[in-house]
Amino acid sequence: MPEEDANLQTVMGLIMNGGNAKGAAFEAIKAAKAGNLDQADAKLKESDKFLAEAHNAQTDMLTKEANGEHAPVTLLMVHAQDHIMNAITFRDLAGEMVDLYKKLED
């Protein structure tokens, strides 16, 4: 696979995993709001799984960069990194909100 295609595949994977992580985190908030706390916890774990996939791809890219294999910085790459950072922030906030709903339930 040509290097450019591999970079595009990695970038698209980051975007997809970021979107899936954020979506699962949002579903966790909705589940907690409805009183489905076990489902909320499961959705947070699902979000974490998607974020781990994205983190592994980022680690691979950073390792290559450190070894002198520089990836081109494109608008799509910047968008992918932004997507991941927003997903991480949203996941953190979702975890706090689920915890709050749990306290309200008690």
Score class of each variant (00 low, 15 high):
Asn20Phe: 06
Ala28Asp: 03
Glu53Ile: 01
Leu75Ile: 10
Val73Glu: 04
Ala66Val: 11
Gln9Cys: 13
Ala40His: 07
Ala21Ile: 02
Leu51Phe: 01
Val78His: 11
Thr59Cys: 07
Asn20Lys: 08
Asp99Asn: 12
Ala31Lys: 03
Thr10Phe: 08
Met12Glu: 11
His55Glu: 10
Lys43Met: 11
Lys45Phe: 04
Asp60Arg: 12
Phe90Gln: 03
Met85Ile: 05
Thr10Arg: 13
Val78Ile: 14
Leu100Ile: 06
Met61Glu: 11
Lys22Thr: 04
Ala24Leu: 09
Gly19Ser: 07
Val78Thr: 15
Val98Arg: 02
Ile88Phe: 10
Asp106Phe: 07
Val98Thr: 01
Lys103Cys: 04
Ser47Phe: 00
Asn17Ile: 01
Ala87Cys: 08
Leu104Met: 15
Pro72Asp: 14
Leu75Trp: 01
Ser47His: 06
Met12His: 06
Asn67Glu: 15
Leu44Gly: 07
Leu62Pro: 03
Lys49Met: 10
Leu93Cys: 04
His55Ala: 06
Asp5Ile: 07
Leu100Ala: 06
Glu69Pro: 01
Asp41Leu: 04
Glu105Asn: 14
Met97Asn: 02
Asp106Gln: 15
Ala71Pro: 00
Asn67Trp: 06
Ala71Gln: 12
Pro2Asn: 14
Leu37Phe: 06
Arg91Pro: 00
Thr63Asp: 11
Ala21Arg: 05
Ser47Gln: 06
Ala66Ser: 15
Met85Lys: 00
Glu65Tyr: 15
Ala66His: 10
Asp38Gln: 11
